[in-house]
C-alpha cells in the first residue's frame, strides 16, 4: 500500500522533539519522518537520526577529471606545436599549471553543482506537503506512513502538542 504524508505543526522545538520520540515508540521508521524548519537547527536538536551525505566525492572526482584534461591538453598541444621559449623545455610545469589549474577548478565546480543538485534533490517541479506557518518559525514533523496509521499518527502529534495537523489533499493554511 502506498504511503501517505501527514504533517504536524509545532510552535515549540521541544514539542516537536517529543513528537519525534512518540513516532519512534509507535514503530515508525526513522527514515519515514523528518523535521521541516525555516532555519538550520543544531545537530540532534530534535533527537533525529544522523544524516550523512557524499557531497565531497563530487568535487574530488571533478578535480581529477579536470586535472587530467588540463595535463593532456597542455602537453599534447606543446608536443604537437613545439615552441621553445627562452631555452625552457617543451614540457615545462609552470606554464602548464595556468591552464591545468583553470580546467581543474572548472570541472570541480561543475561536478559540485551536480552533486548539490543531486544530494538535495533540487530542483523539482512537484510540490510536496508543506505549510506556510513553517516560514513563521513553526516546526513541521512530516511523517510518511501507511494510510491505516494516519489517524494514530495524527493523535500522536496532537498529544505531543501540535497546533495543527495537515494531511495530503488538505488545503494548506
Amino acid at each position: 500500500m502506498a504511503k501517505r504524508a501527514i504533517l504536524g505543526l509545532f510552535e515549540d522545538a521541544s514539542y516537536a522533539a517529543e513528537a519525534g520520540d512518540a513516532l519512534q515508540r509507535a514503530g515508525v521508521a526513522p527514515t519515514d519522518y523528518d523535521f521541516l524548519t525555516d532555519t538550520p537547527y543544531p545537530e540532534g536538536a530534535f533527537g533525529e537520526r544522523h544524516e550523512g551525505h557524499k557531497l565531497y566525492i563530487f568535487p574530488l572526482c571533478g578535480a581529477l577529471v579536470g586535472l587530467t584534461i588540463g595535463i593532456l591538453l597542455t602537453s599534447m598541444t606543446q608536443m604537437a606545436y613545439p615552441m621553445v621559449q627562452a631555452g625552457k623545455p617543451i614540457l615545462s610545469l609552470p606554464p602548464m599549471a595556468v591552464v591545468t589549474y583553470e580546467s581543474t577548478m572548472l570541472t570541480a565546480i561543475i561536478f559540485t553543482i551536480i552533486g548539490i543538485v543531486f544530494e538535495s534533490r533540487l530542483p523539482s517541479f512537484k510540490q510536496g506537503l508543506y505549510d506556510t506557518r513553517i516560514t513563521e518559525g513553526y516546526i513541521g514533523v512530516l511523517a510518511n506512513v501507511e494510510e491505516t496509521q494516519l489517524t494514530e499518527v495524527s493523535t500522536l502529534f496532537t498529544q505531543a502538542g501540535a497546533v495543527d495537523v495537515v494531511r495530503e489533499n488538505q488545503a494548506p493554511a
Binding site: 523528518d34 533525529e48 551525505h53 534533490r121
Partner: peptide, 8 residues
C-alpha cells in the same frame, strides 16, 4: 522546487 527545510 523541492525545498522543504528537511535536515538532509
Amino acid at each position: 522546487g523541492h525545498w522543504y527545510g528537511a535536515k538532509k
